[in-house]
Design a protein around this nucleic acid. Structure first.
Length: 591
RNA sequence: GGUCCGGUAGCUCAGUUGGAUAGAGCAUCAGCCUUCUAAGCUGGUGGUCAUUGGUUCGAAUCCAAUCCGGAUCACCA
């Protein structure tokens, strides 16, 4: 059990024995003691004063005395400053944490929950390559799933590929018009970029056609509707839905190019899925639900045949769920897919990693499911994340200010190589080992940079800052790990030589941090927020570096101290590696 | 206009189930490598926690109003 919880329970027990009153964990707080005071953990007494009619000093003394006396192996002393009861935890406790967990690769993991959680993330469109925004989504989704898994839940990583619709047809039309039969192979272009280029070409041509029409005196709205390339696109969408063979063939071929490109990038960033849904297979789902909704009077049909739900009583609007021509809209598909996920996997919780621009949509989705009385409605959770912006403002694909994922990864690796060469610490590495290291560092820097920020906040991506490998960064943590490993290569731990011993300030500080690892994993999972873990691992690395500078391991004051510090090194490396793994970041043995 | 989210050091961010003198990194200044990897460590400078009012022993944190920025409110996805 976590020390903080143990202290809380000890306090509850003491309060009961002293005053005959029962308190719960919510009635008072246990905090880490601020560094400027003596002690490790602090009971905040203020909220207990009134119910017990005690002064801070009286309560502090009575409670402190009772807690220390009834747990002689856990607490060694206490002191009271104002309304704060500071407790010093026995070194023996920290030693126990150390010796029990130093070589346990499962340290931090939670007990099996026998529940299944699905995490949907990435969900790309097949008309353009991945960009920086997708990276935030992928890293968040992958890491959240890993963290939830570490908390003892079975996880299913999934993704819905938006492989149909008008945006896909735009790329297809442009390819027909301008490509002269070119392919990714013939032009030596990565498939997703190749298709994306035709999406851009479409927009250029469309814009030109609209302007020509406006020049001829057509009003803007009409011009946008009547531009030949747009009309052709709309016709193609109808042909696709009708299953016209040559359209289907082109669609399949162009999508296959995109998938080949995506596969390369996903492999590179370590994103993977247990199940992939394709919109072309799911876009008709949900129609049955619409009928059920109508018969339950949850939905209403208007005179023109369109179907709506009235959410005004919930502070939202009226929302259409089926067009007058009987075709389904986006949210209808989502209702259908939610049902399918539930049917196929019997999931207990369903997490959607979707940008905050769709907060309203997700709210509506869940509300509709609730009103339909669907059993999984309450298990839907939206992991909403903010947009990634550049120092110059928003990324806009039309203005060419989008940071391409592949380009960015190349750049990160290039900088990793340059910095590694400047430092010259791994000159004996083979070419292959070097390549692997550059990838590890470059990708680690990027992932950490994107994951260290609270998901729900929008973030600024500063290209220069992101490639800084000092301070609060992934490479800093990787470097700390490599440093520790360098020591551990020199000497093997002999745990039996370590006995109870008094701990120095930095030794204890590090152990207090390390003991907290399981709680941080739990909190990150519970809140669907990997940034807590990122912050935590950074702090562990930072504390270790202070310890490392202050105290020598190999030339320790005594053999016993040396062995103790080797154990601390082992546990620290273990926690850093495990924590980083849950963020999807590898840590090198040397760098 | 309605709804939702955000505003903390020059910059990027922690800290928000209310707790002690608000913390990191970057930048800047001053130190530390004949000793386990200096991608490191130690210290200095830097704050009206957007503003105003309220709640109370105590507010960056809760409530209200205001200002600023963003998202969203399509028979688009």
């Amino acid at each position: 059990m976590a020390i903080q919880q143990q202290i809380q329970e000890a306090a509850i027990k003491s309060l009961e024995q002293l005053y005959g009153k029962t308190f719960t964990a919510k009635d008072f707080q246990i905090n880490k003691t601020k560094p400027e005071f003596e002690g490790d953990y602090t009971v905040v007494l203020f909220s207990l004063l009134k119910p017990l009619s005690k002064s801070p000093d009286a309560l502090g003394n009575e409670l402190g005395k009772h807690m220390v006396e009834s747990h002689p192996s856990l607490f060694t002393s206490y002191n009271i400053i104002k309304g704060f009861l500071n407790l010093t935890v026995a070194d023996a406790f920290w030693m126990q944490v150390l010796t029990q967990n130093y070589n346990d690769v499962c340290f931090g993991k939670g007990a099996l929950k026998h529940q299944k959680v699905m995490v949907e993330y990435s969900s790309p469109n097949t008309n353009k390559p991945l960009h920086l925004g997708h990276l935030r989504n992928n890293f968040l989704g992958w890491s959240t799933a890993a963290i939830i898994n570490a908390n003892g839940y079975e996880t299913v990583k999934t993704c819905i590929v938006n492989d149909r619709g008008v945006h896909i047809c735009k790329s297809m039309i442009a390819w027909q018009l301008f490509a002269n039969g070119a392919t990714p192979q013939s032009t030596n272009t990565k498939g997703d970029h190749f298709v994306g280029d035709y999406y851009v070409k479409f927009n250029d041509e469309y814009k030109a056609q609209v302007e020509t029409l406006i020049g001829k005196g057509v009003d803007k709205a009409t011009a946008e509707k009547e531009a030949p390339i747009m009309k052709a696109t709309q016709q193609m969408l109808l042909d696709w839905e009708a299953g016209k063979p040559e359209v289907m063939e082109l669609w399949k071929e162009m999508n296959s190019w995109v998938y080949a490109g995506f596969d390369t990038t996903y492999k590179r960033i370590g994103s993977d899925f247990d199940k992939i849904y394709y919109e072309s297979n799911t876009y008709l789902l949900g129609k049955k639900t619409v009928q059920e909704g109508l018969s339950k009077n949850v939905f209403i049909q208007k005179e023109d045949g369109s179907v709506w739900i009235d959410l005004t009583a919930d502070g939202l609007d009226e929302k259409i769920v089926q067009r007058k021509d009987g075709t389904s809209v986006y949210i209808t598909q989502d209702i259908g897919l939610a049902q399918q996920k539930y049917d196929e996997y019997k999931i207990d919780e369903s997490i959607y990693v979707v940008g905050d621009e769709q907060n309203y949509h997700m709210k509506v989705l869940q509300l509709i499911c609730k009103k339909l009385g669907l059993p999984y409605a309450d298990s839907i959770h939206h992991l909403s994340y903010g947009m990634v912006e550049l120092p110059t403002g928003k990324m806009k694909s039309r203005e060419g200010t989008v940071v391409d994922a592949d380009d960015l990864l190349d750049e990160m690796e290039r900088v990793a190589q340059q910095k590694t060469e400047e430092l010259g610490k791994v000159k004996d590495f083979t070419a292959e080992e070097l390549k692997e290291l550059y990838k590890t560092i470059g990708l680690g820097a990027l992932k950490f940079y994107l994951l260290r920020v609270d998901p729900k906040k929008k973030m600024i991506f500063n290209p220069e800052e992101s490639i800084d490998f000092h301070g609060y960064t992934g490479p800093f943590i990787q470097y700390t790990h490599a440093r520790i490993k360098s020591i551990l290569r020199k000497e093997k731990v002999q745990a039996e030589k370590v006995h109870d011993t008094s701990l120095l300030k930095l030794e204890k500080e590090l152990l207090i941090d390390l003991e907290n690892f399981p709680s941080v994993i739990e909190q990150s999972g519970h809140e669907h927020n990997p940034s807590h873990l990122a912050n935590y691992v950074y702090n562990v690395a930072k504390t270790f570096n202070s310890f490392y500078t202050e105290h020598s391991v190999m030339n320790a004051e005594s053999e016993e101290k040396k062995q103790l510090r080797l154990l601390i090194c082992e546990l620290t490396a273990n926690v850093i590696a495990s924590g980083m793994r849950l963020l999807g970041i590898h840590v090198p043995e040397r760098m």
